[in-house]
Amino acid sequence: MTLEQLRPQISTIISEHTATVDERLLSICEVLESNVPYYNWVGFYFRNGDKEELKLGPYVGAPTDHTIIPFGKGICGQVAVSNQNFVVPDVSAQDNYIACSMTVKAEIVVPIFVNGENIGQIDIDSNTPDPFSEEDERFLEFVCTQVASLL
């Protein structure tokens, strides 16, 4: 299934008003992880109240010890500060990378904005070297815009 073909599924999940926000976020993670072969860990991080840190939200993939990430630390922490997408084709080449698993080769993080404020992000790890394209970025921006409508 192509990324474009997944867009209607994401919109359908967002509009399932009988499910909680966390249930819908988890469903998005499950759809992405199961339909995109190189999306091996898919999760959401959100600003932890007024603290300068991110807190792990719903995710699919291997368990992680990184449930709290300070702003500026790792790829996710850098996106919390920069407000920019961050595509890492090779995590071993990044000085500020927080290793979640030895199998992870690449990562993409796209921020979620509500009323112009960066309130969180989608984080995707891949066990495939350099798999992410501009198409992934545009698709994940769409996902984040959809998610923002829930929050």
Rank of each mutant, 00 (worst) to 15 (best):
L3G: 10
G57F: 03
D136H: 02
D136C: 08
S92T: 15
I10C: 07
I13W: 00
F46G: 07
L54P: 01
V36S: 13
I108R: 07
T12I: 08
V110F: 03
G74E: 01
D90G: 12
T103E: 12
G74S: 05
I10N: 07
V36Q: 11
N96W: 02
E16K: 06
G74Q: 02
I75Q: 13
L150W: 10
I69L: 06
I98S: 13
D22G: 11
E117M: 12
Y45W: 03
L26G: 01
R47C: 06
A106P: 04
F44T: 04
V143E: 12
I69Y: 11
H66P: 04
P111D: 12
G57M: 08
S11F: 03
A19R: 15
V60I: 09
N127F: 08
E141Y: 04
F71Q: 08
I112R: 06
W41R: 00
V60G: 05
H66E: 08
E134K: 07
Q5W: 02
L26F: 09
S11I: 04
N85Q: 01
F86P: 00
D95F: 02
I75R: 05
A93K: 15
E53T: 13
R138G: 01
Y39L: 12
H66L: 12
K51P: 05
Q5N: 15
G77K: 01
E137F: 03
D95G: 07
M1S: 05
F71K: 05
I119C: 06
A19D: 15
K51A: 06
Y59L: 07
P8E: 01
Q9C: 06
P58H: 10
T145C: 04
W41G: 04
A148T: 01
Q146H: 05
V91D: 09
Q146Y: 03
F46Y: 09
E135T: 08
A148Q: 09
S126L: 02
R24N: 03
D50S: 10
T2N: 13
A99H: 07
N96A: 10
I14K: 09
K105N: 10
T145W: 04
P131Q: 04
N48P: 00
I28A: 02
V21Q: 15
R47V: 14
A148R: 05
P63D: 14
E117T: 09
Y97Q: 09
F139Q: 07
D50Y: 07
I108N: 04
V114T: 06
V60W: 06
V110T: 10
L3P: 12
V31D: 00
V143G: 11
D65L: 07
E141A: 14
I14A: 15
E30W: 01
P131V: 09
F142L: 08
I122D: 12
K55D: 00
E30P: 02
F113Y: 07
H66V: 00
N40Q: 11
N48W: 01
F132A: 05
E117W: 06
I28Y: 08
E53Y: 04
A148I: 02
M1N: 11
F132C: 03
A19W: 12
Y45L: 10
K73P: 00
P63Y: 09
D136T: 00
D125S: 12
D22S: 14
E137N: 05
I13F: 02
C144Q: 14
L3Y: 03
G77I: 00
V143C: 13
S101C: 11
W41P: 13
V88Q: 12
D90H: 11
M102S: 15
T18C: 07
I108V: 11
